[in-house]
Amino acid sequence: MTLSSAAPISPMLAKAVDGVPDPASVPGGLGYEPKWDGFRAIVYFDGETCEIGSRGSKMLTRYFPELEAAFLEQLPAPCVLDGEIVVRTGKAGHERLDWEALSARIHPATSRVLTLSRQTPAAFVAFDLLALGDREYLDEPFSARREALEALAAGLRDPIHLTRSTDSVDTARRWLVEFEGAGLDGVVAKPLAAAYAPGKRLMLKAKHHRTADVVVLGYRLHSSGSGVGSLLLGLYDDDGVLRNVGGASAFSDLRRLELIDELAPLVERDDAGEVVRGETERSRFSAGKDVSFVRLRPTLVAEVRYDQMEGARFRHTAQFFRWRPDRDASSCTFDQLERPIAYDLAEVLA
């Protein structure tokens, strides 16, 4: 097996679509799975040691010792698995995914990591098999990878799980509605005939709302002079340039003050220790406004909700949803955004 954590692979990605697609829309048909709301992870098991790589190829192993122990105990042979790390909370019969509890697992203190591994243990949901023993599956169709994954998963138990799968579009559309109540955020459609394509958006995802992972460029103070009024957001273009795409605001009074402290370590300062400020572009609507902002080192990633794009910017102010500690800022690009299909305005007005 040549795949290893020493040369981590980029996971295959999904492109947003409007609604669960029909299987006839893709040559070879589609398989459907729930879209899990967790940390994407590639598990590398060489028969003796195990590493858990993030979507951006950072190793997450130290943050999830209970999963590492489970992989070492349960996996029957060297393999590479693609899946999602999740945390479940709630009483039996009323469980749901808990993003906040999962995010809290990324902590620098070993003692805290061990405590959280007992208080909010994680689970791993496997949905693809990239290698098993000496056999690599990257060039094989998803249908073959799924069959091999099912055989491997037959001997696994909690906290390692196999994702549900169906070839029925009606079932998938029902999942999209029903599974939201358990904290899942959509359905993924996978071309059954497609090979595994690292870093490529060959899969299709139908979600309950539009979201984007963005880089936090800086913040403006609230008009009251107290706390953060808005966050400035950015995405990388095809040339690797970080572009301002809009902002997120509407924080409570308490949250505005909390954000000042949370963002303080990322504030850029000059050689004299003074805060570095930037300015956004002026428009005819902001000619008399203060468009300056406190610059932050571009390392913090946030997930925001938005309604639509206007050119290369969010048309309206985005809604802050959550921090994404599992995402690298460099992975926040425009190609994750849903691209509306062109439509003739005359048809709308007719």
Rank of each mutant, 00 (worst) to 15 (best):
L3F: 06
L3H: 04
P8S: 10
P8K: 09
M12T: 04
A14V: 01
D18Y: 10
P27C: 03
G28M: 10
G28A: 10
G29Y: 12
Y32G: 00
E33F: 07
R40F: 04
Y44H: 04
G53H: 13
S54R: 06
R55E: 11
R55N: 09
M59P: 11
P65A: 11
E68T: 07
F71P: 01
L72E: 01
E73G: 00
E73N: 08
Q74I: 02
P76R: 13
P76K: 13
A77W: 01
D82L: 11
G83E: 04
E84P: 07
I85E: 12
V86G: 03
V87A: 08
H94C: 08
E95K: 14
W99M: 15
E100K: 13
A104N: 13
I106Q: 14
H107C: 09
S111M: 09
S117Y: 00
R118C: 10
Q119L: 11
T120A: 10
F124N: 06
A126L: 02
F127H: 15
D128Q: 04
L129C: 03
Y137A: 06
Y137R: 10
P141A: 07
P141T: 00
S143L: 09
R145I: 05
R146V: 01
E147A: 15
L149A: 02
E150I: 12
L152W: 08
L156G: 12
L156W: 11
D158H: 14
P159D: 08
I160C: 12
L162G: 00
R164A: 15
T166F: 02
V169Q: 15
D170S: 11
F179A: 14
E180D: 05
G181Y: 01
D185P: 04
K190A: 05
A193I: 07
A194G: 03
P198Y: 08
P198F: 08
G199M: 05
K200Q: 12
K200F: 04
A206V: 11
K207D: 07
K207T: 14
H209E: 15
R210K: 11
T211H: 07
V216L: 15
V216H: 02
R220K: 14
H222C: 10
S226C: 10
S226W: 09
S226N: 14
S230E: 12
L233Y: 03
L235S: 09
Y236D: 06
Y236R: 03
D238N: 06
G240E: 11
L242D: 07
S249G: 12
D253K: 14
L254H: 11
L254G: 12
R255V: 00
L257R: 15
D261C: 09
E262D: 14
P265V: 14
L266R: 13
R269A: 11
A272Y: 03
A272C: 00
G273C: 00
G273L: 00
E279D: 07
T280Q: 14
R282F: 06
F285T: 10
F285I: 01
A287W: 13
K289S: 14
F293M: 08
F293Q: 09
L300R: 13
Y306Q: 08
Y306K: 06
D307I: 12
Q308W: 09
Q308M: 11
A312V: 11
R315G: 07
Q319I: 01
F320M: 05
F320G: 01
F320V: 01
F320T: 01
F321H: 14
F321W: 15
R322F: 04
D326M: 02
C332T: 01
T333D: 09
F334A: 06
P340M: 04
L345F: 05
L345S: 09
A346M: 09
E347Y: 01
L349E: 12
